[in-house]
């Protein structure tokens, strides 16, 4: 008994909660599979959508940069336009329940309704596991995955890193460009750009 106690004390010392080093998925790499539950309680895996283009959008309704793209209807417009072309748009919220920005599934359903969000699913990642596996740093932070499961774009939504709604006009939208080019069989001209916005409110 004594021995196991000492051993577990040592194991506890050695197995201290390791700080999470952020992984990252860059353009050209395979998009790692994940499974998350959407706000209606339905599970979705990335691998369910093999053979289709998938957009991953990191989301936090309380972030002014996310609000910029929804208030301007920019994000809903992209979701609708590419949804009609068969692109699966997944919106992911990695905010920890410990943050004041956390919105539970019920509240998130209201937001989806009020904002008329058109993505295929809004999924919560309260432990931040998927966000940290992809290296999602900001809201919004975008990934475009091709039908073979390869990342063709990772980074910011456009080239105007501001919170002003007016700046959506005239910005170069990297996600739309990557989808258009990729669907047309062309190489993606800008496969990576700096993400901008609020930090993802990870559990730590």
């Amino acid at each position: 008994m004594m021995k196991t106690f000492a051993a577990s004390a040592i194991a506890a010392a050695v197995g201290l909660a390791a700080p999470v080093a952020l992984a990252a998925v860059a353009a050209g790499q395979a998009a790692p599979d994940f499974t998350l539950t959407d706000i209606q309680g339905k599970k979705h895996s990335l691998s369910d959508f093999k053979g289709k283009y998938v957009v991953l959008e990191w989301f936090n309704s309380e972030c002014p940069f996310v609000q910029k793209h929804y208030e301007s209807s920019n994000m809903q417009g992209l979701q609708k336009k590419y949804g009609e072309k068969g692109v699966v748009w997944l919106t992911i919220n990695s905010t920890t329940p410990e943050s004041s920005n956390y919105r539970d599934p019920a509240r998130s359903q209201q937001i989806v309704k009020e904002w008329k969000i058109n993505s295929a699913a809004l999924m919560l990642d309260p432990e931040g596991k998927v966000g940290q596996a992809y290296g999602a740093r900001t809201t919004p932070h975008m990934w475009v995955v091709d039908p073979q499961g390869k990342v063709v774009y990772a980074g910011g939504i456009d080239d105007k890193p501001t919170f002003r709604v007016a700046d959506v006009q005239g910005a170069r939208n990297y996600v739309a460009a990557a989808l258009d080019e990729s669907i047309a069989g062309k190489a993606v001209a800008v496969p990576a750009a700096a993400p901008y916005g609020c930090s993802v409110k990870y559990k730590y």
Binding site: M2, K3, A9, A12, L16
Partner: peptide, 25 residues
């Protein structure tokens, strides 16, 4: 870890005081 060490030292102390004799460690 601090709580674990306190418990560990206390158990060792009780053993030295002769409160109990057990096993090997």
């Amino acid at each position: 870890i601090v709580a674990g060490l306190a418990l560990l030292f206390f158990v060792l102390g009780l053993n030295l005081s002769g409160v109990f004799q057990i096993g090997t460690g």
